[in-house]
Design a protein around this nucleic acid. Structure first.
Lengths: 255, 255
DNA sequence: ATCCTAACTTAGGTCTAACCAATAGACCAT
DNA sequence: ATGGTCTATTGGTTAGACCTAAGTTAGGAT
């Protein structure tokens, strides 16, 4: 036997084995290349990428392909595209907003229950307060007191809830932790839109809220991390319980 | 003085103020429309959107525009596009991966310091452990013990670190909180890539790690939320301190 | 009948070549 | 100083062709 038969393979004559290979699209290749260059810092923030027609001649790709690549980067928050003369694709570092948008999509798309959102907030926000007590600047402090003032003076319920979100966001901001800021930016509106139909927000609740905020503000001002943590725990936990109580009552109403 | 002068404005005579207005692009309009329909549940998961050429006749837009809209949705993780016959755009609910990708971009793009990543993990993961103790299923438990076994048996440092990440991810998974899962999916690789050059991982550290994991696993098995929380706090905190110590030493070495 | 292959069909991917629309800047008229 | 006009630049949009991936099916070899 003139050893023509190779090692046994389920199909085919040759024993050469290859893994399934992914063939990337041209636009993905270009997007990836540009993305890496942006993230590596090769293009500083605000730098203008070459115009589309220039990228066409450089890459030998069609304008369609180039544009798709740029669109990908735009959606990922890595470039900002402006039309008109002196327009073009300008490098941006992805910000908390793009993260918050993506988290928001997850929340809406998966229809995360309000209980899970509140649970997450109970996990994150006390920690934010703790960091805020440690890292807050004078500007942060001013923001916190201003925002709580706005909560106290809010008119209708919608105003109140928005001002409330803004104060909570200021807490995240004062933590100076960008990941937590991004999470809280996504959680705030989601909780708002799931909550703003509830009617448990009476004057007593509002007064209690403002007092709770004020106590947390003081702890952060005094850089008392332990107190900030503890008070925020109580604050968000009691909010969650209120919501749970209303939900239970609403469920009963539905019967 | 015939009070003709209006309120002072830096430029112009009129006091009428307008905000900058955004003019959406055609592809954005279509993307938005489709996005809302997907998120509202009008298109169930896995449903096929009409073919591009069909959308062209329905919307009176050009194929380029339609394709850009679909590309936007694809990047946002709302559809999965397949080529070939029986291909097309299939509705997907955004998953933790798309959230993790976006958080990863933030981390890389903003060059978030390792210290901030560790700090965030110290905030999130004990809470994950607490939730895991409350919500874990039998399958979660099995996964946790398997994964820690893999950590114990890992070969080189790279193996060890990967197995370590996998165990930590299993913790997040066992919490059954999708937002936390997404965050931990982003943090794990980021911490890994910032850490895997450090040489503080000796056999003693590895043994300690495995013991720490085991203790946490037991607390979760026994649904002892308080113990899970406390032990995870100690576990991740000591890891952070190790890293900080190595960084300090490395900085000195650079002198 | 069974199996393989070739042709067909459908749908996304890419390219080309226009033209439209937004915008900055220069210049001019009031 | 305000507003109009022109022009150049750059992204936005369109139309139409062709390429490529991947199911489907019909026909032929065994």
């Amino acid at each position: 036997m003139a050893r023509t038969a190779q090692a046994p393979a389920s199909h085919g004559r040759s024993s050469i084995r290859l893994s399934p290979m992914a063939v990337p699209k041209a636009s993905d290749v270009l997007a990836e290349e540009l993305r890496e260059r942006i993230l590596s810092g090769e293009f500083p923030e605000g730098a203008a990428l070459p115009p589309e027609r220039e990228l066409v001649v450089q890459t030998h790709m069609s304008r369609t392909t180039v544009r798709e690549a740029l669109r990908i980067l735009e959606v990922q928050g890595l470039v900002k595209i402006k039309a008109g003369r002196a327009g073009g694709a300008f490098v941006q570092r992805p910000g908390e907003e793009s993260m918050a948008r993506s988290v928001g999509l997850l929340i809406r798309g998966r229809q995360i229950r309000l209980a899970a959102l509140l649970e997450t907030r109970e996990g994150l926000e006390p920690f934010c307060a703790k960091l805020a007590a440690r890292n807050r600047t004078e500007a942060d402090l001013e923001m916190l007191f201003d925002r709580n003032q706005a909560v106290a003076e809010a008119g209708d319920i919608s105003d109140f809830l928005h001002a409330n979100i803004d104060w909570h966001l200021a807490i995240a901001q004062a933590s100076h932790n960008e990941l937590l800021i991004g999470m809280m930016m996504a959680l705030g509106p989601a909780i708002y839109s799931a909550t703003h139909n509830e009617e448990f927000i009476d004057d007593a609740v509002r007064a209690t809220t403002v007092r709770g905020h004020a106590a947390i503000n003081r702890a952060i001002r005094d850089q008392d991390a332990a107190a900030a943590l503890r008070r925020m725990e109580r604050h968000v936990h009691s909010y969650s319980e209120e919501v749970a109580a209303v939900e239970a009552r609403t469920d009963i109403d539905l019967d």
